[in-house]
């Protein structure tokens, strides 16, 4: 029997994994988003509104919230086409802060006072979603769509020249990512049974990016490793007392120095595949 402490940590891992996957999907097109906590917040508030106020069952509420957030993602995705690289990253940062600021003033759902009344979900439920979406991403990774995503990332002009619809690909990635982040938010709300705008800050967006980069940004499974690391590492540094986060920061830099491509990468997978066939 797993201790409830580890069960709690694993629930956090599952939610962080979904958030990290949402960053991973956008990153696959060569774009960095620093505002996915915004989509997570939209998902958290919308799902909670549906289950608490409207009495919608959770699974349906999550699907609706994901669809709505995905639509917002697509709407955000179009103007985002004008921006590249770090400029897009900064625009998404602004978006995330705007969403947080919006919920802070959204008195209908508690404003700064937060929102209550959700029913607690089991660890199994969180991980059913997390595993399903991880699987979906893994299937996508072996599909034609992913090749197209990567083509857009590697050289957008060339991708357009060979007839790829780069607009649909990039906007679609934004929409899909926004939907995944919204599910993370809905699950977060129903795991903690209380939400407040501060839960969806820039720090949370950065955590998602951190999980992807530490775990490995070239394979979806990297997000899983990164999420595990980010949740477990601070817990295992408790013996350092007052210096816990300084050492955490140091380890973070050290890990980037040792493996800037992240813990998992494609060559690692190929290495195992080679071993298996030999």
């Amino acid at each position: 029997m797993m201790s409830t402490y580890y069960a709690g940590l694993l629930a956090d891992v599952g939610i962080l994994l979904l958030g990290a996957l949402s960053v991973y999907i956008i990153l696959a097109t060569g774009q960095l988003s620093l505002g996915n906590a915004g989509f997570m917040g939209i998902g958290a508030y919308l799902t909670s509104y549906l289950t608490v106020t409207m009495g919608v069952p959770l699974t349906l509420a999550l699907v609706i919230a994901a669809a709505a957030s995905g639509a917002i993602g697509v709407i955000i995705g179009f103007p985002a086409l004008r921006l590249r690289g770090i400029y897009l990253a900064m625009a998404t940062l602004g978006f995330g802060e705007m969403v947080r600021s919006f919920f802070l003033n959204f008195d209908a759902m508690g404003g700064a006072g937060g929102f209550h009344g959700m029913r607690h979900v089991s660890l199994g439920y969180i991980w059913t979603w997390a595993a399903a979406i991880l699987l979906l991403v893994a299937i996508l990774e072996h599909s034609q769509i992913w090749l197209e995503l990567r083509a857009v990332r590697d050289d957008e002009t060339a991708a357009a020249l060979v007839g790829l619809d780069t607009t649909t690909i990039k906007v679609g990635a934004f929409g899909f990512a926004a939907a995944v982040a919204a599910i993370a938010g809905g699950l977060f709300a129903h795991h903690h049974v209380y939400i407040e705008p501060g839960n969806f800050s820039f720090e949370r967006s950065i955590d998602f990016v951190l999980a992807v980069i530490l775990g490995g940004s070239t394979v979806g499974a990297g997000a899983l490793v990164g999420a595990l690391l980010l949740v477990m590492l601070p817990e295992h540094l408790r013996f350092l007392a007052d210096w816990r986060f300084a050492v955490f920061g140091g380890l973070l830099i050290a890990m980037l120095l040792v493996r800037r491509q992240g813990i998992l990468d494609r060559s690692l997978f190929r290495f195992f595949e080679f071993r298996r066939s030999a």
Binding site: V209, I213, A246, G249
Partner: peptide, 13 residues
């Protein structure tokens, strides 16, 4: 992200 690491360290210190 590596500068984020420094930011965490400096706040703690």
């Amino acid at each position: 992200l590596s500068t984020l690491g420094f930011s965490i360290i400096l706040q703690n210190v």
